[in-house]
Nucleic acid binder design. Sequence first.
DNA 1: CGTTTTAGTTCTACGATACTT
DNA 2: CAAGTATCGTAGAACTAAAAC
Lengths: 351, 351
Amino acid sequence: MQPGKSREVAVLTEESFGSRQRVTMDDVARRAGVSRALVSIVMREAPGASEEKRRRVLEAATELGYRPDVRAQSLAGQRSRVIGVMFGVTVGAFHFELLDGLFAAAESHGHNLIISPLTKSRDEDTAARSLQGFRFDALIMLSPPTSHPLLAGRIPLAVVGWHVDHPRVDVVRTDDEKGIHAAVDHLVTLGHRDIAHIDGGDTVIATARRDAYLAAMERHGLTSWARVVTGGQSQVDGLVGARRLCAADRRPTGLVAYNDDIAVAAIGVFAQHGIAVPEGISVVGYDDSSMAQLSPVPLTTVAQRPDELGRLAVERMVTRVEQRRIVDREIVLSAELRVRASTAQPTRTPA
Amino acid sequence: MQPGKSREVAVLTEESFGSRQRVTMDDVARRAGVSRALVSIVMREAPGASEEKRRRVLEAATELGYRPDVRAQSLAGQRSRVIGVMFGVTVGAFHFELLDGLFAAAESHGHNLIISPLTKSRDEDTAARSLQGFRFDALIMLSPPTSHPLLAGRIPLAVVGWHVDHPRVDVVRTDDEKGIHAAVDHLVTLGHRDIAHIDGGDTVIATARRDAYLAAMERHGLTSWARVVTGGQSQVDGLVGARRLCAADRRPTGLVAYNDDIAVAAIGVFAQHGIAVPEGISVVGYDDSSMAQLSPVPLTTVAQRPDELGRLAVERMVTRVEQRRIVDREIVLSAELRVRASTAQPTRTPA
DNA sequence: CGTTTTAGTTCTACGATACTT
DNA sequence: CAAGTATCGTAGAACTAAAAC
């Protein structure tokens, strides 16, 4: 090699955006007065470097503004250190917090996340193919919930937020059943019997929550009161659903919504029909997203922990890639009911 | 080289997810009976290959399920072919469609997008540092709108959706001024005078739209009727803003909202106050997102073209990276008013 | 016949990891 | 620990061989 020459070229062609660009391990090694290999060891936090040299290397790296080249790392290592992330249109505050958790965890494990969005014009297959260019060694799917992910069994794969029945798919999710049960229990304890549910449509998650609602009602012997109205993911769906509830001859005294967006929209519709919340009707949301706290009537809701979900998903995948044992394929986080102002005792007695 | 050995190792360690994994240029070259370099030439669509060999190479590539390794491409090339994308919490249907456009364009230009989200715990600096590992050669920022992007002038940079006053920042945006003017003009033409605006808060985009609203009102000699209510990005902000409007002694007959989310939320609030749309009040949204068409009252709104915005942003950056000339630093797409059912002639005469 | 064009190959560089000595 | 070297999978420059004019 001719380091001198390579330096020259770099200086001439690079515009750079730190102090200098194109700082390589060589530069750091030379500056710290050690070998390249030792720099590698230090940067990877691998064992085999004395405290003093470690310090000197890190110092040199900082001074030069050195950041390891992830492309080279990825190419040279046995693992690519790349985790693909597919995520779809179901974008809300909740999914965004999930992304945040994923990135934080990935970075702390020295892995890189490559996002591959799923849109109308970009299906699972296209998204997978594009990720393949990075030779990713694991995949995390956020949405939309599919019961049979395309790459299931072909590569370490984790889905976040719903249940998948595949022996080689890892699952990290919130206990939606307990979450919905807690919501129903809360309303029943307050004295409600006529409790309706605006669902989330036909997705796997929506189905799970709907089933949980029906089961909870049955457990309380309220099957005859159970009522499901078709909703969806977003506020507009909530508007439609709530409107249908208002039009019914029997108006419920309690509502469990698929998510916070639906709940907030429903509150608006109720108000427009002269029904106050929680006096006229109690409403429970789901997710404890930013929506819940910003809602005009602070929302009683079921909290998920997006940061935890993200962290666990990444850690699972890292574990899989490193071929270490995983005890349980499915991690289920508990859901926690957060009681705020949108629920109260019923004032009317249902017919 | 010992290709035989390298094959063996690959077969043993790879789980693979197509038919085979770890297919390299070597494999394709061997199969097509040509040199590796020729495969490179064909894959890059570079000149210097006969039609026949080109066909044979592509055939071999298809049969083997070969995809070039973007890490190696990135590392070996003079350019990294990586474009960083920062995007923040302002996530709505609109921004998602933007992402779609960006990916489509990037892929068709043989570039790779690396997403670096901006969240509470992840600022511009952190996001930039993480991208730096990829040696990205251009950056596209979607949000949140900043007037002084951190990396301005240090690397080819494009912002999408708002104006930035920096000689080395490319801008691709919709003509918000004309868009808002069209909205106001539309209402004025219908006979409205008392037209209010629920704004988007303090972001650069929100300020631009607010100013445009005020200017439009002035142009029609309606300055005394102008009224701005503080809103924000999401539906909850719309709820608050609309409520404030209803509480005012003088109720407007027309409303121009910062975006579709605000508009839809406002319609809900109006209904709850017994005000029908468009009979009691006309409402215009912004973005023509999926929200606009799903709204219970189909929304009159100003359409942006997210796919175009995305495509142009990518193409600018590719052009910059290739050091080719760019004529105008700022591209402004026209905004188009889509008239639907949420606007009509005023039925009341304002006091 | 000499010179450019086109097609194809050979070889090194890219920036790290990982192994050997 | 240090030093050296092979390797990862590609780009791309330098080079060769043959055809084209």
